[in-house]
Amino acid sequence: MPVRETYVGPPLIRWGAVIAGTVIGLAVMVLLSTLWVAWGEGGDVSSIADNLHWYAFASAVVALLIAGILAGGLSGIPGPGAGLLHGITVWGITLVVAAIFPIPQTLRLFDTFTTPLPQIGDEAMWATFWSLLIGLAAAGVGGIIGGALAGPDETMHRADESRSSETTSAGES
């Protein structure tokens, strides 16, 4: 009976890489957002205070791009497809974490989710929508970049090679 050649490789998602990308991405988002809040509220920069939701939008996009690059690169699975999958997974987890565990309200980063609709205004709603949509694209592009930078995974090997080495060593004993 002929032996079928099968390949044993890593799983499609490396959760350690996704978690690392998510944690670092969230940290970058909070860091940048607190910078804008501090400048807009504490300084004399009225343009930041008046457009804080757009600065938070830019912070989210940059953070998700960085998170996607890290997740795709740390996965150890080279290629744009694996990188894209890791980047989109980071985006999904970041969205769920931000919705379930809101950043302290003193930062007012997610006022959009807690303020009644008539008080939010159109610009804040659009900034939230665009940050989610463009953040998804940024995380995906970041994952593709990270996947392109990822080196080959050393755990990938052909199953028949390991099987033949097992039978050879068993036959020698």
Rank of each mutant, 00 (worst) to 15 (best):
S46C: 02
A71W: 06
I66E: 00
R163T: 15
T89D: 06
I103Y: 04
A56T: 05
S59P: 07
E5G: 11
L133A: 12
P152Y: 11
H53Q: 07
L84I: 12
H157C: 10
T115Q: 07
L70I: 15
E161T: 12
M1N: 09
I93D: 09
L70C: 07
Y7H: 14
L84E: 02
E172C: 08
G171E: 06
Q105I: 15
E123D: 09
F110I: 15
S33C: 11
V8C: 05
T22F: 06
F110Y: 12
F129C: 00
I69Q: 03
G135A: 05
A148V: 04
Q119F: 07
A137F: 09
V97L: 11
P2H: 09
L136A: 13
A56S: 12
L74S: 13
L132A: 14
R108L: 09
M1I: 02
H86R: 08
A159M: 02
I69H: 08
S169L: 04
I69C: 05
S59D: 04
A49T: 10
I88M: 13
L84M: 15
E172R: 10
A150W: 01
G87C: 14
E123I: 10
T106E: 10
P152D: 11
S165Y: 13
D153N: 06
G171Y: 02
V97H: 15
S169M: 12
A99V: 15
A60E: 00
P78F: 01
D153Q: 10
S131D: 05
V141G: 10
T167W: 06
T6C: 01
S46D: 04
E166W: 07
P118N: 09
I24G: 01
S59Y: 09
G146F: 04
L31N: 08
R4A: 12
T115Y: 01
L107V: 08
M125D: 04
T34A: 14
R108Q: 03
A150G: 04
P80E: 00
L133G: 14
P102V: 14
G151E: 08
L70A: 08
A99F: 15
W91S: 13
W130K: 00
A170L: 04
E166N: 13
V61P: 00
P104N: 12
V61M: 03
R108A: 14
S173P: 12
L64K: 10
I134Y: 10
I100T: 11
N51W: 03
A148D: 03
A98W: 04
H86Q: 11
E41T: 14
I145E: 12
S59I: 15
L31T: 05
G72M: 05
A99I: 15
L74R: 07
S47C: 01
P118L: 00
A27T: 07
L85N: 06
A170V: 08
I19S: 02
W39S: 05
A67C: 03
G73I: 02
G25W: 05
D44K: 11
W130E: 00
T6F: 03
S75H: 09
